[in-house]
Amino acid sequence: MRMSKLTLWAAGISFAAVALPALAHHSFAAEYDSDKRITITGKVLTVELVNPHSWIHVEAAGPDGKMQDWACEFGPPNGLYRNGWNKTSVKIGDTITVAGSLAKNGSPTINANNIQTADGKRLFAGSSEGNAAGAGKQ
């Protein structure tokens, strides 16, 4: 690997700007609660690597045990690609684990922090969480 994960964590601990306009940026602060952490594991239903947010839908059980279609939001595709994703990284039918922030309105929507595939591979989510109003809590 080019860089150890430790280097990645240590690198650039700045408030990196996101390549998003106000609308998409605003949606984090408006839609997600960075205090409501959640982790789900399930089967991939769809994968869309698109701007400004990539989306992966996962069929998984939530905290209440109910199986649902979880919409998981990731970062822009170029950033994901530069961090090791490609169109074969996550495929329909794969089992993955997604950790992130839950939507405020209680819908099964997660702003993803990170994702782990069944083979133990970890992929960065490139989420917009770190760049929204939530960071004001630092």
């Binding site: 990645l8 690198a11 990196a16 994901l80």
Partner: peptide, 17 residues
Amino acid sequence: MLAAAAAFTVFWMSSPP
């Protein structure tokens, strides 16, 4: 928070695959 911010900074710095 640090992880997300770090990951994002790295995005624009990482070399192509």
